[in-house]
Nucleic acid binder design. Structure first.
Lengths: 198, 198
DNA sequence: CGTCTATTTGAATGTACTCAAAAGCGGTGG
DNA sequence: CCACCGCTTTTGAGTACATTCAAATAGACG
């Protein structure tokens, strides 16, 4: 398989710790490149999550749909993000959220058997994964704090500041569902923000 | 050291996987029992979290104080819970929340050096910890979903159903800060719940 | 018993929501 | 190239839920 296509992934791993060429090659051998068209689903809420995947290009979102049909976007995933509900992936329980492409995207996916084999056999990967799990936990705790203590306007301003690209790239109603408000409310918030500026 | 005092902890570990007597004894040797009086702090927000600890008895809460001085209770910790901000513990960054006893409590604490030594030297502990980290991540993700998609009333009813002991044991204003509402609002919600019942 | 804290209640305010409709924008086919 | 369609965003009006400020009541503890 052409190794060139995995150059982003290689850099992503090396950010945490060094991977030997063999280790990296061994890891990429478990991956299957998959192309997703805009709006296509990578996995569906309530179905088992059979794959985890690395986002090589494009953009996706993970979102939970409640029993009223309202959607809550848990995160947006760009290049170097990993997607899939790990809980479902590991334990076979129904996935708690859907993952859907917001743009045409390319991901590299792995199924459970191969993933666990890689964890067993590739110490570099095992180490990376351990660090990753810890960081994910920290991030999700931080996100819980933010979500509970910041107003919608504060969250939006923070997003504008920390991730202006997201606001550029993603339709506003998805941003609203990320902020956990209705599109109408985000529109009004934007109005007050921009009127304050003048 | 008297091993009898660690019987809860032993059972707690064994729920995940078997510990040999040596492994368990080795682990308990890194622990220091600490008694906390009601209202006493185990660690303070913005200071480094120097210890992680297991709750052997009593009850504590972890809470974040925002810049307006409002408190948000992230979780209550009873017997078998672990407390401390792991992010701060590992990386030395300021702790993102405080941990305070709500009742007189006994905890077993470990500092970073000993904790990491234990992870290196006791495979049973390392395995337990890996499972624990994964579960914590899953729980915190689930909590994020709930916090964003359920109304305060739903959350309170759920708490009444799933953890009636918490509602019994813990003053109402702490419950309110856990639900992320003001004590006045919880009081009103309770009023409507109880009036519906009759 | 008195003091301190927790809880309840009242009234006014604020933020986001619902329902409804208009305006804006992007892509497609004639 | 433009007209049309579908989807997104904005705007309006009325409503719901939680908040703030304020005060009264209830409970806990020395």
């Amino acid at each position: 398989m052409n190794q060139q296509q995995f150059s982003n992934l290689r850099m992503h791993f090396e950010e945490t710790d060094h991977f030997s060429d063999e280790a990296f090659k061994k890891f990429t051998s478990i991956l299957t490149p998959v192309v997703l068209k805009k709006k296509e689903f990578f996995n569906m809420q309530n179905e088992q999550c059979r794959y985890l995947a690395y986002v090589n290009s494009g953009c996706l979102r993970a979102f939970y749909t409640d029993n009223k049909g309202d959607e809550f976007t848990m995160y947006f995933a760009f290049q170097n993000w990993w997607i899939g509900d790990k809980t479902s992936f590991y334990s076979g329980t129904p996935s708690r959220f859907s993952v859907q492409a917001l743009e045409d995207a390319e991901v590299f996916r792995a199924d459970k058997t191969k993933w666990e084999k890689a964890l067993d056999e590739i110490p570099e990967f095992e180490k990376w994964y351990r660090v990753k799990t810890r960081k994910s936990y920290e991030a999700s705790q931080q996100k819980l704090i933010s979500s509970q203590t910041e107003s919608a306007e504060e969250k939006y301003l923070k997003l504008l500041k920390n991730a202006p690209d997201i606001v550029q790239r993603i339709p506003q109603h998805y941003i609203a569902s990320y902020l956990n408000i209705k599109p109408q409310s985000l529109s009004r918030i934007r109005k007050t923000i921009f009127s304050k500026k003048h």
